[in-house]
Design a protein around this nucleic acid. Structure first.
Length: 225
DNA sequence: CCAGTGATTTCCT
DNA sequence: GGAAATCACTGGA
């Protein structure tokens, strides 16, 4: 249940790593959550990624070795945590968007006074960072052996996974690079149910197959957008 | 239930 | 100057 992941797990395309992170445990000290929602950001050629214009002081960690945290400060008050993926220089990462609290709930409620229900603790990328006590100190640290880490957890049935376009990515025609556990009450936004919602959504798709399709679409398109 | 808005950093135009 | 990988609060339907 607390078994480590290998470096090679993260040294793959972010679109392949992302669905594999569902069900894994994100652990910080004595607090832990089960990951139920992620998004892939695919490096310098992804217009929605912080890496889109090459390394900056903020985004340089994404261009380093995989299996490290890219924790950034957003909207002047929130922290968001990503895992660097792929090869060094690629700038790819997976954003951890939501989780189900499994350990240290008292501490989470303590630090998130606004949360009334368990579902309010980690149902968003900034909420889960606050609940786990994650901030800039974790930036650039090791995901495998650091104080903030991801370890093996549950395997999620492909039929339980929903794929949609990314949240907050206003660029029209966004690719289906958000994966979530369909029946989880801990996601940041409810799953679309059995129909197309918004721009892109595939319900009940097999993650690996959809990921392969997304990659093929990129290759065919040449440029993204 | 939903739309509008403030908080206020990083980075591009 | 303004948009952005967000959240929480407010006020009206």
């Amino acid at each position: 249940m607390t078994e480590s992941l290998s470096r090679s797990f993260f040294a793959r395309d972010a679109v392949l790593v992302a669905p594999d992170l569902l069900g894994k445990l994100m652990v910080h000290g004595d607090r832990a959550i089960r990951i139920v929602e992620v998004e892939a950001y695919c490096g310098a050629r992804d217009p929605a990624s912080h890496a889109r214009n090459g390394p900056t002081p903020r985004s340089q960690v994404m261009f380093g070795p995989p299996g490290h945290w890219y924790v950034y400060f957003s909207y002047g008050m929130h922290w968001c945590a990503n895992v660097v993926c792929g090869d060094p220089g690629e700038g790819a990462a997976v954003l951890i968007r939501a989780g189900e609290p499994v350990e240290g709930l008292d501490a989470m409620f303590d630090v998130r006074r606004v949360a009334r229900r368990v579902e309010d603790l980690c149902s968003g990328p900034a909420k889960l960072c606050q609940a786990l006590g994650v901030d800039g100190h974790s930036n650039a640290t090791d995901v495998i052996n650091g104080r903030l880490r991801i370890v093996k957890g549950d395997s999620i049935a492909p039929s339980a996974v929903v794929i949609t376009g990314r949240v907050g990515v206003s660029n029209g025609g966004d690719l289906p690079w958000r994966w979530l556990v369909a029946d989880s009450p801990h996601v940041s936004r409810p799953s679309p149910r059995g129909r197309r919602v918004g721009k892109v959504s595939h319900v009940g798709a097999v993650p690996a197959a959809a990921a392969a399709a997304a990659v093929a679409a990129c290759a065919a398109q040449g440029t993204w957008q």
